[in-house]
Every structure is written in C-alpha cells, then in structure tokens.
Design a protein around this nucleic acid. Sequence first.
DNA 1: AAACATAATGTAATGGATTACATCATGATT
DNA 2: AATCATGATGTAATCCATTACATTATGTTT
Lengths: 327, 327
Amino acid sequence: MATIQDVAKHAGVSVATVSRVLNTPSAVAEFTREKVEQAMQELDYSPSLLGRNLRNSESRMLLVLLPKVSNPFYLRIVEGIEETALDYGYNILLCQTHTKLEREKIYFNLLKNQLAAGAITMDPTISQEILSDMARQFPIVQCSEYDRDQNLSYVTIDSELAAYHVTKFLLKQGHRRIGLINVGKQFLYARDREKGYLRALKEFGVEFEEDWCYYADDVSFELGQLAMRSLLNKKKALTAVFAVSDLLAIGALKELNMQGICVPNDMAVAGFDKIDFTNMTHPTLTTVAQPTYKMGCISVDMLVKKIQGNKVEDVILEHELIIREST
Amino acid sequence: MATIQDVAKHAGVSVATVSRVLNTPSAVAEFTREKVEQAMQELDYSPSLLGRNLRNSESRMLLVLLPKVSNPFYLRIVEGIEETALDYGYNILLCQTHTKLEREKIYFNLLKNQLAAGAITMDPTISQEILSDMARQFPIVQCSEYDRDQNLSYVTIDSELAAYHVTKFLLKQGHRRIGLINVGKQFLYARDREKGYLRALKEFGVEFEEDWCYYADDVSFELGQLAMRSLLNKKKALTAVFAVSDLLAIGALKELNMQGICVPNDMAVAGFDKIDFTNMTHPTLTTVAQPTYKMGCISVDMLVKKIQGNKVEDVILEHELIIREST
DNA sequence: AAACATAATGTAATGGATTACATCATGATT
DNA sequence: AATCATGATGTAATCCATTACATTATGTTT
C-alpha cells in the first residue's frame, strides 16, 4: 500500500500538504489540492489508520460484549449499535464472552491496549469490582444488564416492573398457580424479574411455593424444555408459566406440545424479549417487547458522549406487554 | 495509560530493554527482567497495540462479513471463526453488510487501512471484480458463498448436490408437485440449489412448472410466510415445498399451520441450514445440516495461512440430510 | 515604496513500540 | 597479560500520519 510519503513524492509536495488535503482541505490551494488528489487516485492511497490513530491517540473502534450471539434478543440491539456507531464513524468489535471471565478479560484488554475507544457490555460475568475499576479509566456503558456504580452508565428497562406486569396479567386471567422459569442469579434481570413476579403474586394474595420455580443453567431452547419437563412433574399442577427469556419459553412450549398439553387452555405460557421467532411458534407467544434497537442506539450515543468526556444520564426505557395466543 | 517510556524510566533501563522483556525475555538478565516486570506491574502497563502494529505493520484483526446476524445460520459459523481466531491470537471484526455494496465497501476499506489483516466474507453482494481485485492485494477467504477465482479461496458445501438430495428424497416419498421457495439469484447458493432441485425433478421425469417457484426478496420468516401464501394460491396444488433456507421454511410452516393445512400429510416441507429453531417448530423441520462450526474454523485456518503467505486449497465439506416430522 | 498582513507550503517533532547496530563489561583462551 | 568471544544493555532509526512552527510569496495599506 502507498503511504503518505509516496503520495507526497508523486505529487511533488510535502507530506504536510498531503495531510492537509485530507484533514483541512480549505488550507490548501485549489491547484495543489487537485494535484494531490490525483496522486492519491493514481496510487490508490488510503491513509493507514494505525498511523493516524497512533498520532491522534484515538481509536475508532467500539467493543461490544455479549454472552452469545445465539440469543436473538441481542440481534436488534447489535443492529442499533452498529448503525449508530457507523454514523459516528466508529466500527464495532463484536465479542462473545460465553459468560467466561477469562474471555471477557481478553476483550477488555483491547481497551487497555488502545485498540478500542470504549465498550458496551451486555454481560454480567465480570465482577463489579473489575468493571468499576475499568470504568474509572475507560468509557464503558452497560446495556440491558447493569450494576449501579457511579462510574458505570447504563441503558435498560425496568425488568422488575415488566415481570410484575406479565404476572399480573396472568393473575387477572384467573391463574393462581404460576410457574417461573428463571436463570442463574448472576444475571440482574433474573433477580429483578423474580422480584416482579413475586410482588404480583403477593399483591393477589397468592402464596408462592418453592417448587414453582426452576433455574436453568443457561438460556437455550433445550434448557427451557428441560425446565418445563421438570415443572410438569410437580405434585400440584401449574396452570401458567412465565419464562424470563423467550428462548426458554419456546423450549417450554415445545415440551407442552410434545406432551399433548394444550396451550393456552391447559397451560398458559409467557416469555420475555419478543424475539422474531415468537411469532412463528404454535401458538404464538405472549411476551414482553423491549425497545432493543433503541437500546442499542442509545448505548452508542452515551458511549460516544463519554468518550468525548461528557457526563451522561442513565436511561430506563419503556417495555410493552405483547399479548398473543399462548395466554 | 503508561507507555513503554514510563516503564523504562521507572525501572531505570532503556525502552529497548523493556521491549525485550516483552518480546525476547531470554535476552535480558534475570535481575533486570524482574525489575522491569515489577515496574510494569506497578504502572499497570500494557503495550499499545497501535504502536506495536504500526511498527510491525501487522494487525491482529480479522474482518468477518455477513449479510445479517439475524439469520441464525451464520451463528455457528461465527462461533467457529471466533474460537479459532482467538486461538491464533486474532480478534474478529464482525460486520453486517445488509447486502449493501456501500456498506461492504466501508468494511473492505479497513483492509486497505491496515486495520485488519484479512477478511472472511459470507456475502455475495460485492461484485466479483472488486472482490477479485481486493483478493489480489489482501488475504480473503470466502465462506459458504463464493465465486470461483484464482485469487479467491473458499470453504463451502456442495449446494447443488444437497438440494438434489432433498428433492430426490421428496420425490421418493411419492411427491410429484414440489414447490421451491428460493431467494434472489445474486446468491450463488440460490442458483445452485435451484439447479439441484431441477436435476432431481428431471431425473424422476417430472416436468417443472414455472409457478412452482417463488423468489423471496430476502431471507426472513415473514417472507417465507408470504411465499407460502403465494404458492398456495396457484391453480394446481403442490404436495411438498423445499425452501432454500430454514428461515423461509419456518415462515412457510407458519402459514400452513395458520391455514389449517396439515404438515406433512397435506403438504411436506423441507428447509436448509438446520438452524436451532427447526427443532422447535411443530412439526419439527426436515432440513440439511451444514457443518457450520467447522466451516468457520476452516475459514480461519485458511485465512491465517494466506496471511502468512502460504497457498491454500479450497474446501468443500459434506452436508447431511436431517429427516424429521415435516416430511 | 516600505511595512505589514495573509495565504500557501515546508520542516521537523511527535505518538508508542521494535530492532539493527553500537557499546561496554565480563570471562575464556593462549 | 593481551586478545577475543559472549552476553547485556543502550542509542537511534523506523513504521505512518498529524500539526506547531518556520518560511516564503503575494497582496494591501499608507
């Protein structure tokens, strides 16, 4: 690849002039500018970002950390992030942590190494301490999952409230024995959604029983199926199930279909996230829509502001209960 | 962040020595090494990749181009890529092109700008000319989608043969009127799968009719549903449908369910890709499994070899017909 | 016409890390 | 003891682009 030196020589000017053509064209005489531009054309020159970034000690790369791309919940967020980042002239580095601390550390190191200018994290794996420590030095925004910390900003929804709404909806439909398919408590949303679920039960005077609740090790179809199978084996039958993730809910639905249990008549099912596929299941799934695309966009807005050294306010967005056939 | 200069000063040595501790520790006396390492610790130093990459004129970043992450088909490929890349010490830059040439160009520029060392592309959007031109200058591997070109390597499956197998399977089951839900011909796989489909029909002496075939504008649930709806409106009823992508097949399945058409009795459905969802549909979907994870791994192997200046052989992997309830 | 303002361009330092080459000290060889 | 080989470390050039400052040329003001 041609360098700025080559272009300068080819055009018969100094490197400074070439650089000016790129950065402050108005400072260069028209005639010269054309000469330089032609030289660039002829040599098929494009400036090395390594050189530029080193000199400006900046990077136009944003780190995006998520547990796994295989959960479609993240897709629209990522689309929002990518779209917005591109508008700001940033590229994104999409990183799957597989909720492994070790993996996460590798990626966070890219911040230290100055390859990335900031990070958006949707993963709760890393300890709050480390994260908070990183956030003191680098711009970091939490999306969806979050911890409260003065250095850490976040954009999310009110999971507790959303879960409360779902559960209340089921209660209003007359359900009294409502199961919960949850995931590990390391996820804040897991804790929050459980809280909301319990609050609704309490409000309706329903006494929660331990074995209504199943904790999946991860978020996937298979584990949702497993969860449902386990819940069906309990002594007293449930009449509805609320899964904290659509993936789990769809797995549960599958199990119910397989066992010939009619949804929603014999068992109502509600999910969370409104992934595309929830509209393709039979029956279609009642779920909670999060403004995922918007969350992605806002994360980037916030992050860019932070990179530029501005203070930002945390954001809590609205959710929406999507009532469909499964309830 | 601390720089190598800071560390040198702190440890009372020259920057060269610090660099040696990082790159050729054996060339440094033990006592000095320890001193330097301690200084690094104390200053929480990690080397700037910008400086290093600039000096070494290398980048440890791989470009991964795909149309959209929203098609789960790509997920396992990406996982394979990420896993393998990490093993080689590379990071990946995941880029959605949305099959827009303009987007793709932005990303390919990262190669020119030396931010990425090579690219794996799963997108057919860019013209063969440009791609081939890029491939002359930069290491590029095509995954799944490909063009034949001496500069371009690829890893893929034999789409024609796979489609032939699917269609033949349906024919053997006694189906004679088999629809095809395809996508635009800009995708090589679309052309190949159609060829395989036609070959099988011909072999069984079935005369293909124009209106058995529907071309979706994109790959999504909704468009699959639309496609099925359109095919159902044809004069002579089909008894089976083959969709070139699971997303389309699942959409089709949905439409059939909605119209109360029984699958597989009234209509058999087959998809392609074996995405996770296909096991969650009702009925489960017959499809073609591609060794996606492996494809991802191999792509990286090939790309890294190319980056190192070695020649590589193209790879065509085996597919597998997964017969389930929908046929 | 002298003095000065302004525009256009060039020179050289800079950012952080690597490494060829130079230097110095130490121990081995004869 | 003089010479040399070896190991450890430092000096300075280099990668590419940006930019403060210096220089030169041109036009304006009185």
